[in-house]
Amino acid sequence: MTDQSLAERLLRLEEIETARGLYNVYAETLDDPDPDTVAPLFTEDAVLHTPVGDFVGREAILDFYTKAFADDTSVKRHFITNSRVVAHRPGEVHLVSYFLYVGRGDDASIVGWGTYDDRIDVSGTQPLFREKTIDVHVGTDLSTGWAKGAL
């Protein structure tokens, strides 16, 4: 192995771990929901794909999270699991993962899960989402349960 290939491999691993670290920051941010904290985790021209539509640019993403947090005031905890690197090129990591959330609303306990499919820009001083796809598979309260396929 040449010094150059070793250096390239090390840089690749550092970029991948930097991207994975963004998942931790994102989950912690959702646990203390503040749209002004979430939006800066995205590049200025990022694209967010959600079950309710696509949002292009940091301002549109800020508007999405502002509405989402206002519409759902439950207290949640988010867990991101089974992260897998799909692709890597210098400065960008493509990760997919599962997410799970549990929460407490005013009168119900809630649970949900789904997948993230993300392209993360790791070329700057901090990692940022360039493109994020949120696919919610189940979102329900515990009295309804997920057997009925509630979303």
Rank of each mutant, 00 (worst) to 15 (best):
T2V: 03
E59D: 15
L22W: 04
G145Q: 10
H88M: 03
E44G: 04
L11Q: 15
D72S: 07
L41C: 01
L48R: 01
D121N: 14
I110F: 10
R12D: 00
V138W: 03
A87Y: 00
K132C: 08
A108Y: 11
E14Y: 08
G105E: 07
A19Y: 07
Y116K: 11
F129L: 10
F64K: 05
Y65E: 02
V52G: 03
V86E: 15
L48K: 01
V122H: 04
S109Q: 13
V75E: 11
E92G: 00
T81P: 01
E17I: 00
F69Y: 15
V86W: 00
V47Y: 01
Y116L: 08
D3M: 11
L11N: 09
Y116T: 07
N24M: 06
P33T: 10
Y101R: 06
L151C: 10
L151Y: 07
L142G: 01
S143M: 07
D121P: 10
M1I: 08
F99A: 05
S97R: 01
V25M: 05
D72K: 02
V86F: 00
H94N: 08
G53K: 03
R58G: 03
G21I: 01
S5H: 12
W113K: 02
E59C: 03
L151I: 14
M1S: 14
D107N: 15
T133F: 03
V47G: 02
I120C: 04
V25F: 01
G149H: 07
D34M: 00
Q4Y: 06
A60K: 04
H78A: 02
P127D: 04
A150W: 04
D71L: 11
R77G: 10
W113N: 14
E28F: 02
R104M: 12
Y98F: 11
V85E: 13
M1K: 07
M1A: 13
V85H: 07
F64V: 04
G53E: 06
T18Q: 15
V93I: 14
D54R: 14
V111A: 10
L151R: 14
V25S: 08
D45G: 06
P33Q: 08
T125P: 11
T144P: 03
F99Y: 15
T37S: 12
E44R: 11
A68M: 10
L11I: 10
Y116N: 04
P40Y: 08
H78G: 06
A39F: 05
A150L: 12
D3W: 02
R9A: 14
E44V: 06
W146V: 12
T140G: 02
T73A: 14
Y65L: 03
R89Q: 15
T18A: 13
V38M: 13
Y26S: 03
A87S: 15
R9P: 00
D36C: 01
G149N: 04
T125V: 13
T140E: 04
L151N: 13
T144E: 13
G21Y: 02
P51H: 10
T73P: 13
I134W: 05
L100I: 07
Y26Q: 01
E15A: 07
G103W: 04
